[in-house]
Design a protein around this nucleic acid. Structure first.
Lengths: 215, 215
DNA sequence: TTTACATTATGACCCTAATCATAAATCTAT
DNA sequence: ATAGATTTATGATTAGGGTCATAATGTAAA
C-alpha cells in the first residue's frame, strides 16, 4: 500500500487564514496533539468527540473504497479545520483523516465547540461559509468526474486549486501537485494522469519543470 | 433538448419535513410565486436575492457543461430549500434551478433570511445540518463517480436515496426514478444506464415493474 | 383522438482508459 | 552514502462505456 503521498511536497507554510483564532481555542480548553506521518487521526464511521484544526503539517481526508483504493476527498493545509461534519449532524465521520507528515493539531471537545457557535453567530456564519465553500468544490468535482475526459477532470481540479490558492508552491506561486495526488483525487489511474499531463503540457495548458507539474 | 424529465413521475406529495415553517416565512414577509413547467427560477452565475423554499411541485438543480449536457446536481422535493449557497458566501449561484413541473415556491429576501439566522441559532444549526447532509451526499457521489463501474455508480446513488427516503413512490414505498434521471445525475449515457439496470435486475439487485425501476 | 415529445430499447462499431508488466528516477530516513 | 519506498515512465493489450442509428413505447397536452 502506498502511504504518505504528501511527504515530498513542501508547501508554503505561511498560513493563509485560520478558522478559529488559536489563542481563543486555547482559552476554551483546546489541547494540542502531535501525529506522526501516516498516523490515523480519526476513522470513517466512528464517533466524533472533537473539533479539529490543523496547526502545521498536512492531513489527507480520504475514503477507502471496496477494492482498497484510497479516494482523497481533500488535503488539509495549516489553519483549516477538518472532520467537521459530525459536529453539525451528530452522525459518524464521513471519511478518515490521516497525517501526511508530522502534524500538529488542535482539538476542542465537541460540546464546547457547539456552544461556541451558539455564542458567536459571526463565527457560525464563518463555518457556514466554509461548508458552502466545500460544497461548491464538490459540485464542481462531481460534475467533472461525471464527464468522461480525463484532461477535463484534471484541468477543473487544478483550476479550482489555483482559484482557491491551495497547494501553491512557495517559490513560483503556482499550483503544484504530484501526478499521484491528482490520481487519488480524481479516481483516474496514475498512468492515465501521467499521459494526460504530458498531453496538457504539449498543448501548453500546464507546465512541467524538472518532472514536476505546475499550473 | 430534452426538458421536463420529472413530469411523469408522481412522488408522494406528503411533505416529509419543512426547512422553515411556512407561517413564519409569511410573517417575515415572504411571497409565494408560481412557476410553469421548465421555467427558469434562477441561473448559474447570477446574483442571489432570495431564500427559496419549495412548497409544491419539483425543481431540478443543474449545471450545463460545455458540451451542452445537463448535469443534475439535485432534485428538490416540497419542503426543501434550494439555491442557498450564495446566502452564506455572497457569491453567485453555483447551479441553475428549473421547475420540472408546475411549482409553488416561497421566497424571502436574503437580508431578512440572514437576520433570521442570526436571531435564531437553532435554525442556523438546522441549516448547518442541511449543508452537511448535502456534503455527505457529494462525498458519496464524487467517490462513486470516480469509480469506473456504472453499476456501482447507480447502486450507490439509489442506495443513498433509499436511506434518505427521497424520490419514494407513494404506493410501493420504494425509490423510483427513470433511467434518464439516473443518467442525468451520474453523467452516464442513457443506453449504459438501461443496460446496467437490466443487469442489476437480472442479479436481483433491483426491481423492474412495467418497465419502471424500483429500488 | 391526434400530435408532439420523452423515455426506453437494441445492435454495431469505435475509442480510450484501465490493466499489467517492467524499470528508471526521485525522495526519505537511517 | 545507502536502502527502501514512492513516484514517474513506457509499451502492449483488453475490456467496456461512448457513440450512432433506428424504432417502439409511453405520456401529456391540444
Amino acid at each position: 500500500m502506498r502511504v504518505g503521498q504528501l511527504k515530498k511536497v513542501r508547501y508554503l507554510l505561511k498560513i493563509k487564514y485560520i478558522m478559529v483564532n488559536v489563542d481563543r481555542l486555547l482559552d476554551l480548553g483546546a489541547s494540542t496533539k502531535k501525529y506522526n506521518s501516516n498516523e490515523i487521526i480519526f476513522e470513517e464511521g466512528t464517533e466524533c468527540y472533537y473539533y479539529y484544526q490543523l496547526v502545521s503539517g498536512s492531513v489527507r481526508w480520504l475514503q477507502v473504497s471496496e477494492d482498497g483504493k484510497e479516494f482523497v476527498q481533500d488535503m488539509i493545509e495549516p489553519g483549516e479545520c477538518f472532520g467537521e461534519f459530525p459536529l453539525f449532524d451528530e452522525r459518524p465521520y464521513a471519511a478518515s483523516a490521516i497525517a501526511s507528515n508530522e502534524c500538529e493539531v488542535m482539538r476542542l471537545p465537541r460540546n464546547i465547540f457547539q456552544q461556541l457557535l451558539k455564542d458567536d453567530p459571526d463565527l457560525h456564519f464563518a463555518f457556514s461559509k466554509l461548508l458552502v465553500e466545500r460544497l461548491r468544490f464538490r459540485f464542481l468535482l462531481s460534475k467533472n468526474l461525471a464527464s468522461n475526459k480525463p484532461e477535463d477532470k484534471i484541468c477543473s481540479l487544478l483550476g479550482y486549486f489555483k482559484e482557491q490558492k491551495k497547494y501553491i508552491c512557495s517559490k513560483c506561486n503556482l499550483v503544484q501537485l504530484t501526478r499521484q495526488q491528482i490520481a487519488d483525487m480524481t479516481g483516474l489511474r496514475v498512468e492515465t494522469v501521467i499521459r494526460s499531463i504530458r498531453h496538457l503540457q504539449e498543448t501548453g495548458k500546464l507546465q512541467i519543470n524538472k518532472g514536476k507539474v505546475f499550473y
